[in-house]
Amino acid sequence: MQIVKSIAEMQSICRNLRTQGITMGFVPTMGALHKGHLSLIQRARSECKTVVASIFVNPLQFAPGEDFAQYPRTFEEDCRQLESEGVAVLFAPDATEMYPNGAVTTITVPGIGDRLDGASRPGHLTGVATVVAKLFHLVAPHRAYFGQKDAAQLAVLRQMIQDLNFDLELVSCAIVRDADGLALSSRNKYLSVLEREQALVLHRALTKIEQSIAEGERHSSTLLQIGRNTLETATGIRVDYLAIVDARSLLPVATAERGVLVAVAAFIGRTRLIDNFLVA
């Protein structure tokens, strides 16, 4: 696996791959890799000739007081995992390479970027859109792979790709969970044993809603109350949002029809976790 630190070198490598007609799948990450990330790599490898990944803890998507400094960084282990999964090129720049002195341009997706996580974390989705646009520009992949767990991010990126005419396919991949249902997240490492047990209520609440939909309940107001009732059984958590929304616009919907997004975010102690499912 080739590890690249500079934008100029990364652009040159990716330009050469495209010139050769090699289909590139791209998986951008912030490192601290887990099986969820590796599932994206595996999907990309099954659909593309070459897999390119990135590791960059993007300061632009962290608000003041958030966990940028504490975010887990496990670069050597990440490299071992990526290489074992067959990644050909890893882009691992530092912040001064991505945002040189004087860089002021950002990308904002109004409306969508202000909902769900965008409402809870002002500026977060602008930071995501900006760094992903830069990565798309320099890698120019044929397909880019993201996890469904970050549903608000997916909605923003879909709109950005459409509006800015990026010539690539965005591929959404299923959430990967531990055996007890907890959605995998790099931030799970922050949880104590007790907090990890408390965090399972997010999945329980979503499962209750999903079961109610399967039994015929479709009214969002009723389904949200069912979810809230479950969340209220747990101690040590603070709910950020529980929402039933259109998966593309992130606007609330009155009924939970096929393809609608049911999403939750909550603080478990000081750790903010998210989870969701799409109505089948």
Rank of each mutant, 00 (worst) to 15 (best):
N165M: 10
D167N: 14
L168R: 00
E169A: 00
L170V: 11
L170E: 04
V171N: 00
S172L: 04
S172D: 01
C173F: 00
A174N: 13
A174L: 10
A174V: 02
A174H: 12
I175M: 05
V176W: 03
R177C: 09
D178C: 07
A179I: 13
A179E: 15
A179T: 14
D180M: 06
D180Q: 06
G181N: 05
G181V: 05
L182D: 13
A183R: 07
A183V: 08
L184W: 08
S185L: 06
S185G: 10
S185C: 11
S186T: 14
S186Q: 08
S192I: 08
V193G: 03
L194W: 11
L194C: 07
L194Y: 08
L194K: 15
L194P: 03
E195V: 06
E195A: 10
E195N: 10
E195K: 04
E195G: 15
R196V: 07
Q198F: 10
Q198M: 08
Q198P: 01
A199P: 02
A199W: 06
L200E: 07
L200H: 12
L200D: 07
L202S: 08
L202Q: 08
R204A: 01
K208W: 05
K208R: 14
I209P: 02
E210A: 12
E210C: 10
E210I: 02
E210P: 01
Q211E: 15
Q211S: 14
S212R: 14
S212K: 12
I213W: 03
A214C: 06
A214N: 08
E215R: 13
G216K: 04
G216A: 04
G216L: 02
G216Y: 01
G216N: 06
G216S: 04
R218E: 05
R218H: 14
R218Q: 12
H219L: 14
H219G: 09
S220M: 02
L223K: 08
L224G: 12
Q225W: 02
Q225V: 07
Q225L: 09
G227D: 05
G227H: 11
G227V: 08
N229G: 11
N229W: 01
T230W: 03
T230I: 15
L231S: 04
L231M: 03
E232V: 08
T233M: 12
T233G: 04
T235N: 13
T235S: 15
T235A: 11
T235C: 05
T235W: 03
T235L: 03
G236P: 02
R238D: 12
V239Y: 07
V239T: 07
D240E: 02
D240T: 02
D240C: 02
A243V: 01
A243S: 14
A243K: 01
I244N: 00
I244S: 01
V245Y: 10
V245A: 02
